[in-house]
Simulated assay, not measured.
Amino acid sequence: MRTELVSEPGQQDRPNEDFASIGLPASGQGGALVVLDGVTPPRSATGCLHSVPWYTARLGGALTEMIISLTDVPLTEILARAIARTASAHADTCDLSHPRTPQATVALARWSPETVAYLVLSDSVLLLRSPDGTVTPVLDDRIARLPRASLATDAVVDSTVRNKEGGFFTAAADPAVAARAVTGTVPRAEVRALAALTDGAARWVEKFRAGDWADCLALVRKEGPGTLVERVRTLERADGDRRFLGRGKTHDDATVVYVEF
């Protein structure tokens, strides 16, 4: 089995808000990956004493432990339990009802000799490559389908679409959002490789249109996750007139996890 992980902050003077892990049980049977993209809050209050990296480290650590140790528990329940555990760690000190309480997007995959199960919540991406080379993207595209007017300002987003019916959902403090995730299970024999990307790395496809998802996974497979991130950084620097990035960050945290069976 080949596993690779790259995670690079968008700015060297700011902490990386992403989290990534690969778990391989001592039994040698199966494994799992966890990728989180912490949601950068606005400059206004969040109701929380803690930073986004604090949250993603807590949630990511809980997910990594549970996804490996509780192999009979569905991924939606794993995510719900991890959110609840993380919320309990700061419920006494923070206002977890605030719309900008620390939160993250989620991509999970867990494989056994028989199956590959997956879960995606919000705009991280999971790619599955079949034995014949076909690449299937697993996407939660609810943000992309929203009217631009609903994303005009942080205040509008928070009051109308963030973790609300008809909007989009992230892992924050409510375990119930786990049921909103995109999930599925496929036979292990139908998957030869998979990759999980935060949106900072997925920009190569989604923002810059440098290739499609099959091209993206082929690049990661051939040259490694680090090359994908380097190419994203090159494209970001070249986009001086913000033709592709628009209102997006010039450089975003970028994480890629690759697993090949």
Rank of each mutant, 00 (worst) to 15 (best):
E114K: 11
R233A: 10
A176G: 08
F261S: 12
A57V: 01
V229M: 10
E8N: 09
G226D: 09
D72Q: 14
R85P: 04
L75Y: 04
A87F: 07
A144C: 10
G10D: 07
T40Y: 11
Q11H: 14
L24H: 04
F168C: 07
T255F: 10
L126A: 12
V116D: 03
F208M: 03
E114L: 15
L96D: 04
P25T: 04
G28Y: 02
A87P: 00
L128K: 07
N16F: 02
I143H: 13
D154H: 15
L121S: 05
K164W: 04
A117C: 04
A26D: 15
T64E: 13
T71V: 09
H98K: 05
A202C: 03
G240H: 08
V161C: 14
T255R: 11
V35Y: 03
E8C: 09
I143G: 11
T185E: 14
G10Q: 03
V256Y: 09
R192K: 08
S97Q: 14
H50L: 12
S122H: 13
A20L: 04
D253V: 10
Q103P: 00
V256L: 12
I83E: 09
A152S: 12
S130N: 09
V106W: 05
T183G: 05
L235M: 12
T255D: 06
E17A: 09
S97P: 00
R233E: 08
W54Y: 08
R233Y: 02
N163F: 06
V73K: 05
V135A: 13
T136P: 08
E230W: 04
A89M: 11
V205C: 06
T227S: 12
E206H: 02
V232H: 05
G61C: 08
R209D: 08
Y55F: 15
V259A: 14
V182W: 08
A172E: 07
E260R: 04
R14L: 11
T46L: 13
D72R: 15
S122M: 13
F261Q: 09
D199E: 06
G61R: 06
V52W: 03
L121I: 03
C94A: 10
M1I: 02
A172R: 07
L139R: 14
E206V: 04
A149P: 01
T160R: 10
V257N: 12
A196F: 01
K249N: 10
A26T: 12
V256G: 11
V256W: 11
R110G: 05
D37I: 02
V125M: 13
T255I: 09
N163T: 02
G184T: 01
R58N: 10
D253E: 07
R221A: 15
A254T: 06
S27V: 01
E17S: 10
S69G: 07
T160L: 14
W54A: 00
E65N: 05
D18G: 06
L127E: 01
V256Q: 06
T227N: 10
A195L: 04
G133E: 11
A26V: 08
T160G: 06
R203D: 03
Q103V: 01
K222P: 00
G166V: 00
I22Q: 10
L70A: 15
R162N: 10
V138I: 15
G184E: 09
V135W: 11
K249V: 03
I143L: 15
P147S: 14
G246Q: 09
G226T: 01
S44V: 03
Q11S: 14
V161L: 08
A109M: 00
D252S: 13
P102Y: 08
R58W: 07
A218G: 12
V34W: 00
T3L: 10
T46D: 09
L151C: 07
R162A: 07
L33M: 14
